[in-house]
């Protein structure tokens, strides 16, 4: 039985299969509309995350399956002091697969160790959020046609931004990737990440002004400065509006540059950019559903390949 704890749990070859399946689901939704009939997904969300939870639920419903679960710890047995190990053993009796979000880092791994059903890490604190990374990779691959030979700008909170660290780890497995890290001094990419890139011989540059490098990018990944990652409210207020992507800055970019954002967006992308064909963050959310559909089927062993379980 397989679980998903980190985006690196799958080889690049396995990811290709997963992306192919997700793209096939996008093009032939009706073919997969009943593949999970009779199966149940438990969404165990110990902290609120409407978007991720609804994306998982939409994915399972699209596959003809059903969903059950809880959406914050106060409405679960965790409020009574139940351990993650005990909870997952009980959930294993009720559902066929589980997506777990937990504020404590490593909680889904503890669950996976005790579970008799596949567990998907739906975000554990500031640690991993693999389905976001897989969403990002699928979006890039689907809209750019490749995951290699790209100059990628990552902009905003690069210090605490879990999604950007995870995306970098996933992208360094592909050839000829170059990174531009665009952030204020206080939110620079941590040294352990830049050290890792140096060891692997992967090119990167650190810049402060987005305008200085936007013209060289194939992809711009914007992030939000998140209040919950700061211990100090003053620092958060000072840095939260450091970057704003507007039409003026976008006019400097290549015609085929893609703008991605894990969402929710607050102030970092002006709404005037939304109608630009390069702004693909809402399509990215749609790809998030397809990749979760592909993942659920893959972990349940229902891939829909010829001779497989598809009816």
């Amino acid at each position: 039985m397989r679980h998903l704890m980190s985006p690196l749990d799958f080889t690049t070859r396995e990811l290709e299969q997963l992306f192919d399946l997700a793209n096939d689901m996008e093009q032939h939704r009706e073919r997969y509309a009943h593949i999970c009939e009779g199966k149940k997904l438990a969404t165990c969300f110990y902290e609120p995350s409407t978007r991720t939870r609804l994306s998982f639920e939409a994915a399972m419903l699209n596959l003809g399956g059903q969903v059950l679960g809880f959406s914050d710890a106060s409405s679960s047995s965790a409020a009574k002091g139940e351990s993650v190990s005990d909870t997952i053993r009980v959930i294993s009796c009720y559902a066929d697969i589980c997506a777990m979000r937990h504020p404590k880092e490593g909680a889904p791994m503890v669950a996976a160790g005790r579970s008799s059903i596949p567990v998907i890490n739906a975000g554990d604190g500031g640690h991993q959020h693999p389905t976001q990374t897989l969403t990002d990779l699928l979006t890039i691959r689907s809209l750019k046609g490749r995951l290699s030979d790209l100059t990628i700008g990552l902009c905003g909170d690069l210090k605490f931004g879990r999604t950007v660290h995870s995306l970098i780890h996933a992208l360094v497995r592909y050839e000829n990737i170059r990174f531009l890290f665009i952030s204020p001094e206080e939110l620079r990419m941590p040294s352990y990440m830049t050290e890792m890139l140096r060891e692997k011989g992967i090119a990167y540059e650190e810049v402060i002004r987005l305008e200085d490098c936007i013209d060289s990018l194939d992809l711009l990944y914007m992030t939000r400065v998140q209040r919950e990652r700061f211990f100090n409210e003053e620092d958060y207020v000072r840095l939260k509006d450091f970057y704003l992507l507007d039409k003026e800055k976008l006019s400097l970019a290549k015609d085929d540059m893609l703008i991605l954002h894990p969402l929710p967006r607050v102030n970092e992308i002006s709404v005037e950019v939304d109608d630009d064909p390069r702004a693909v963050y809402f399509r990215q959310a749609q790809y998030g559903v397809y990749i979760r559909m592909a993942l659920i089927c893959t972990l349940l062993g229902l891939t829909g390949e010829e001779g497989g379980n598809i009816c």
Binding site: V84, S85, E105, G106, A107, M109
Partner: peptide, 13 residues
């Protein structure tokens, strides 16, 4: 020593 780690709350882990 990470206060955000699951080991900080999970019994018997």
């Amino acid at each position: 020593k990470n206060p955000r780690c699951i080991t900080s709350i999970e019994q018997g882990l």
